[in-house]
Structure formats: structure tokens, C-alpha cells
Amino acid sequence: MYASRNIDLCTKDCLCLFVCPTGATDTETGQIDKNLCLDGCRLCVDACPSHAIYLVMSNYADPKHKDETLAGALMGLLESKADQEAVARSAAAENPGAQKLARALQKSMRILAEDCAREGGFMLPQSAASQALLAELAQTEDQQIQELAVKLLEK
């Protein structure tokens, strides 16, 4: 577990620099050095007046159990959104406005699809469903897919 700074919120009050026992918060990049950060120390998190520092976990709890029928239906909806994204992608480049609208729809469909994936059991790469998917992809004949999946399983 280590601390991380959200630059959008940081007001440069520097209290994190005052309290950090290892100097991890004072770096040339403006980011906290996670190798110097003490696991779970959180002095900087509590000292920051702007709530700009948070802790990144190294382990995550198992996600809550998903009803299988519901998860299956969400995957069906995801498939529908993937189809719609593909249809929007196939739009020809004749009118700039229509083209823009098609691109917006592609992006929007993907975001909806990702939300279905999240609620359907694929919230985190650490979840059982995600690991099973990677294991499956590591078995495919397609070499590019196989290689990437194997690398991800090793992470």
C-alpha cells in the first residue's frame, strides 16, 4: 500500500513534505515515490488540507458475489453495445457532422459496455472472472493474443 497525489486537487501547501519520514513526497516529478513510501503509514494522507493524497492498495478484497442469471444478462447487453459500436464504426466519411456523431456514439457505446463488464464480474483484473478470461485467451491459437494474455497472467 502506498500514497499517491492527485495533482488536480493539490493546493501546494506542502504539509505532506513536513510529515513524511522518508522524503517520498518530495520528488522532482511532483509524484510520490512509491519505493520510498512506507506501507500504510498515511501521515501525508491525514496531513493534507486538500484531501489530495490517497492510498493505493496492493491487495483488493474479493468482489461481492454476482447473481449468475443477472451477470449473464449483463453480458448479453454488453454484446448488444459491442454490436452498436461496430455499426457506428462502419459509418462512411461523407458528411463531417454524421461522422462526428458516429464517433461520439462509438465512444458512448464502449463506456456503456464497460459498465456492463464492471457489473458483470469484471470489475478488477484480480477477480476470478477476469483471471479465467485471461487463462482462456492464453490458450487461443492466435499468437499475438496468446502472448499478451500470458504476460498479463504473469503480472
Binding site: D83, E114, C116, A117, S130, L133
Partner: peptide
Amino acid sequence: MIPSPKTFPAILSNLAKATEKQQREDT
């Protein structure tokens, strides 16, 4: 249960976002 291949791109791009938030850029 493994979902249909059509669902893979969005599942995987969502996992990319989850990993970004865990600050594991290479993954």
C-alpha cells in the same frame, strides 16, 4: 463461464482503466 468473443474488447478496456487507477501503467 467465459462470455462471447464480442464482449472481450470492452471487458479488456475496462480492465485497462481499472489498472490505470491502480497506477500500474505497464499492465
